[in-house]
Design a protein around this nucleic acid. Structure first.
Length: 425
RNA sequence: GCGGGCGUCGCCAAGCGGUUAAGGCAGCGGCUUGUGGUGCCGCCAUCCGGGGGUUCGAAUCCCCUCGCUCGCCCCA
């Protein structure tokens, strides 16, 4: 096979699918504007250590899924596998955190070397929000609300908000000891993955998919029972506020983030219509991350949603019919002199704000009109040899229900006529 | 990293050991020497993801490989 192909898991986004993406992006942008959340853009490439420290060596993402390489200066670089670490790094690096709380959003491609699957690619796209410097339970709810409402605004149905609390870092440390001790006593009854996690990431054992392990775990001490009074009160406040806002949720004790800097609220928004990868949006509180990356103690909460999965859901629902781009004018011409005038006319109309396509084929008029019709344009401008001689342009309504006499106008008059009809009130 | 399914024209899709590799859509040209949406005519894979093998003979059988896809793991 001589032809070149894109890399595995790296998808092209073709013109016919772009409208939906742009709709999502535009909706998100406007939604964030109204929510007083501003955009931040960070590099796709970072030093590897950022993710090793920011996500955790024990995670699959860092351990076996990163695109990491040495650059020409022998530095270990990594294509970002997620957005949070970079945003926090940028906030620390530029002193944003000393200027007060930050309400930030980002979007763009992320890279993870995984086996592609439904709703999963190696280069995939996320939109995420990070609220840095917000400690109160109400900010957890605001973050969730921004995500939930964005999805609702986009018309995604059938979503479920799953919620859990991981407690404070002290709660977690205490629980971790209890859990590890309990697991150690039953080590031989666990699946091999879970055995390995006792040391590396014990909380993740709770999330094991192995049915036998899950049966065993039914007896295990629960994280909820290990929460301090303060943590429980905080979790109750989150639930209360969600209820007040009318955002439905389901408690999911198995929703776990294994790393130490996660705390309190963890949530996911899932859909059953996505196949195996059901999570559209995931997030939680990460009060420990900023200090972990060398910044000042800063409470924070954030989330990320997967664009591919979102678009998948959107294209499944019929309500999301996206209008094709509208062309105002299609310019048809025949002959060299006419082509030159067509070019000038197209430019002039574009400068005036019209969307104009010019047929450059020089083919028979019949062909050009066929294309004009298929282009979806409302009007066709015709320039042939006679028009060149007379200094006029033919104007034809392509969408007229009844037959309508074609007009012959000067370019100025044509522009005026179109302006009146297309851009007028 | 591990399993299952699949790979014939840009898209859809016949074919199931011997065909000049159907057909539809899209595209291109024409019918109409300057006027569209319908119709009609013509063109559009010496080749069946790639490589090797079996056979007188393969797109059709076997092996390897690449890719796509679904699932596991993990995650958005």
């Amino acid at each position: 096979m001589a032809s070149l192909q894109s890399l595995r898991g790296m998808a092209d986004l073709l013109p016919e699918r772009i409208a939906l993406w742009q709709l999502v992006e535009a909706t998100a942008r406007e939604h964030f504007r109204r929510s007083a959340i501003t955009e931040i853009r960070t590099p796709l490439l970072e030093v590897t250590e950022l993710f090793a420290r920011g996500i955790g060596e024990a995670t699959d993402v860092v351990g076996k899924e990163m695109y990491t390489f040495l650059d020409r200066g022998e530095r270990s670089c990594t294509m970002r596998p997620e957005g949070t670490a970079s945003v926090v790094r940028a906030a620390i690096q530029h002193g944003l955190l000393s200027q007060g709380p930050q309400r930030l959003w980002y979007g763009g491609p992320m890279f993870r070397y995984e086996r592609p699957q439904a709703g999963r690619l190696r280069q995939f796209h996320q939109i995420g929000v990070e609220l840095l410097g917000f400690a109160d339970a109400s900010s957890d709810v605001e973050a969730i609300s921004v995500a939930w409402d964005l999805l609702a605004e986009l018309g995604v149905g059938g979503l479920e908000l799953q919620l859990n609390s991981l407690g404070s870092s002290e709660d977690r440390a205490r629980y971790r000891e209890v859990l590890v001790a309990w697991l150690e006593q039953r080590r031989d009854q666990l699946d091999t993955d879970s055995q390995a996690r006792i040391a590396s990431n014990p909380l993740r054992v709770l999330d094991s998919k192995n049915p036998d392990t899950q049966n065993l775990l039914a007896e295990a001490p629960s994280l909820a029972s290990a929460l301090s009074d303060g943590s429980q009160a905080r979790f109750a406040a989150v639930q209360q506020a969600l209820t007040v806002l009318g955002i439905p949720f389901a408690l999911n004790p198995r929703l776990v983030r294994g790393l130490d800097y996660y705390s309190h609220t963890a949530f996911e928004i899932t859909s059953s219509q996505l196949g195996a990868q059901g999570t559209v949006c995931g997030g939680g509180r990460y009060d420990g991350l900023v200090p972990q990356l060398g910044g000042p103690a800063t409470p924070a909460i954030g989330w990320a949603l997967g664009m591919e999965r979102l678009v998948l859901l959107l294209s499944q629902s019929e309500s999301s019919a996206v209008a094709a781009p509208v062309l105002d004018l299609y310019v048809v011409s025949r002959g060299e002199a006419a082509a030159a005038q067509a070019l000038a006319l197209a430019r002039r109309c574009r400068q005036a704000g019209l969307a104009v396509e010019r047929d450059a084929s020089g083919a028979a008029f019949a062909k050009q009109f066929k294309r004009a019709d298929r282009s979806g344009a409302c009007w066709a401008a015709v320039i042939g040899e006679q028009e060149v001689v007379e200094g006029v342009v033919g104007l034809k309504n392509l969408r007229a229900a009844a037959e309508q006499a074609d007009q012959r106008l000067t370019p100025e008059a044509l522009l005026e006529a179109l302006n009146k009809r297309l851009l007028g009130p």
